[in-house]
């Protein structure tokens, strides 16, 4: 008997701690007890990792904060559920948000595509969005960052800045966005300086920051002096780079220079504010979904950010060439190839 009670207690305790870090509406949303008249847009975000991963998840969270700031906290309500890497758990969170009447539900991961198809038909008035992806439905937007474009520019920058002649990529799992980004970097390096080598390696995980750190150490000990990599484990690699003198990092998804101001040269930054604003506007006009929203340099949904503190580490010629290439991407003159399937 005692045994059973204890097991129950332990289970309850576990649930408590787990739920403690699960769903929670952000504090920024206005208290607004009843607040009837104001037309309020309610947005829910479902994340595979955490709100503060300094990568994919956090970039979207900051985009939503920016939307709230621009449109007014009383006009936009944001609720976030994190750590839902498991598609089944994510599915129940998404369904719950839809049932609670959220207008726009962002399932921020390519892995949510199949979960969404099971849910979206039951909520035809709700707008869903997910990405990276291509498949849409009448009430589902898919968004697709052209990660290879920034990868290309960062690759050029790396090739023209490296002293050892080796650029190292610390990749997560060889699939989807990571491959897209890495392929861009590889092309950019070739374009930047033909005899610079790109060395690509993967940890086989998205969230093993210790593994990413170790892989970065191996990359550096084998000669790479400029490194880059995507996904939420990338901060582990960045931390390893930041501990080593004269080694630099190029970040993607968002600017990671906050934790290593002396080692992040530049960043490819996603501007989710624009994407979410577009979804809100389309919804207001009656378009609930059915479109693929592409993020790229052309409309400013992707941007390149330099670390002002390390401006002297980048040769002027490199910066000029990168800026030129960026203009060519914007004008359509330069198309960065996607990896062949």
């Amino acid at each position: 008997m005692k045994k059973r009670i204890l097991a129950l207690l332990l289970a309850a305790l576990t649930l408590l701690t787990l739920s403690g870090c699960g769903t929670k509406p952000t504090a920024q949303s206005a208290p607004a007890p009843e607040a009837p008249k104001v037309e309020k847009i309610r947005i829910a975000l479902v994340l595979p990792a955490t709100v503060d991963d300094l990568a994919w998840g956090q970039s979207m969270v900051e985009g939503l904060k920016a939307v709230q700031k621009t449109m007014g906290a009383d006009k936009v309500e944001v609720a976030i559920s994190e750590k839902l890497g498991n598609a089944v758990d994510a599915g129940s969170a998404i369904r719950q948000y839809a049932t609670q009447g959220y207008d726009i539900i962002l399932a921020h991961g390519s892995q949510y595509q199949s979960v969404l198809t099971e849910i979206t038909k039951d909520f035809p008035k709700t707008t869903f969005a997910y990405g990276t992806g291509f498949a849409t439905q009448p009430n589902v937007f898919a968004y697709d960052p052209q990660a290879q474009e920034g990868g290309y520019l960062l690759g050029m920058l790396a090739a023209m800045t490296t002293k050892s002649g080796i650029v190292g990529i610390v990749g997560p799992v060889e699939s989807g966005d990571a491959v897209k980004y890495n392929y861009g970097v590889q092309q950019g390096v070739l374009k930047g300086k033909a005899d610079v080598k790109t060395r690509t390696a993967y940890t086989g995980s998205f969230n093993d920051i210790v593994g990413a750190g170790n892989l970065a150490k191996t990359q550096m000990s084998a000669g790479a002096d400029i490194l880059t990599g995507s996904s939420q484990q990338a901060v582990g690699a960045l931390r390893a780079v930041a501990e080593t003198k004269d080694k630099y990092w190029l970040s993607t998804d968002m600017d990671q220079s906050s934790i290593a101001p002396d080692h992040v040269l530049a960043a490819q930054v996603y501007n989710w504010e624009k994407v979410v604003t577009k979804i809100i506007e389309l919804r207001k006009k009656g378009t609930l979904g059915g479109q693929v929203l592409t993020l790229g340099f052309a409309d400013g949904t992707i941007d390149l950010k330099y670390n002002a503190k390390l401006a002297d580490k980048i040769p002027a010629a490199a910066k000029a060439a990168v800026e030129q290439a960026k203009q060519d991407i914007i004008s359509g003159k330069l198309k960065v190839e996607l990896p062949k399937k």
Binding site: K3, T14, T17, C21
Partner: peptide, 29 residues
């Protein structure tokens, strides 16, 4: 208690609690 089950319970407890404490007392990378 059955050891396998309580071990898994302890694993989930540790995972949840460490994540919660991190969120409460540190909050970011």
């Amino acid at each position: 208690a059955e050891q396998g089950i309580s071990g898994i319970g302890l694993y989930m407890f540790g995972w949840g609690l460490s994540g919660l404490l991190f969120r409460l007392y540190v909050g970011g990378i």
